[in-house]
Amino acid sequence: MLEIKNLHVKLEEDKQILKGVNLSIGAGEVHAIMGPNGSGKSTTSYVLSGRDGYEVTEGSAELNGVDLLDMDPEERAAAGLFLAFQYPVEIPGVGNMTFLRTAVNAQRKARGEDEMSAGEFLKVVRAKAKTLKIDADMLKRPVNVGFSGGEKKRNEILQMAMLEPKMCILDETDSGLDVDAMKLVSEGVNALRDEGRSFLVITHYQRLLDHIKPDVVHIMANGRIIKSGGPELALEVEHNGYADILAEIA
């Protein structure tokens, strides 16, 4: 599904952030990336989704054999990539429903599919919103404006559910969530798991991985993935911190 090879990325102001990331995620797999602050986790998610301000100096990233780095953000989305933002953006003046329908139809159009009719869209969005406990009012309000932290993250998952991407990146989706909200969001994610859809879960805490069970856990530090393993690796980090692992490879 996602193949990242030797990815080197620097910021426009010349600061090298990623220093050779290698990552291979198969179809239907859930991978988690953990790592200390500043290790390059969020940068990885932004570079993959095409945000401005990052320069790829070496390496490649492909989604199902297609070069991601060559595409505009909207093309990456249409190709099946989705990033659940750590800090979802508030957009005053744009209704949540308008936003969702515009996005869904833009992707369908890009893939040469028919646009979804207003009636059909409404039916689907209402059903999906209900399982995420998103009420009609949240759908009517401007995108994320006045939403609580939990509402914003639920709204991210609703977008994911509507867009049905193949490769989902969750950037610290657990940050700012209380226990119940985390459970709700995780259930939303788990409902989307299937053999054709992969996930990359970026998190600081093992707790999220109790809810969204990963197949592989990676530890990222200083712009590289320094260790990979099973779910037990996350538990190890939770108990001992990163010091042991960093010492191990030093």
Binding site: G50, A77, L83, F85, T102, V104, A106, Q107
Partner: peptide
Amino acid sequence: FYLQSRGV
């Protein structure tokens, strides 16, 4: 960017 990342 947020809108673009959703395919718009």
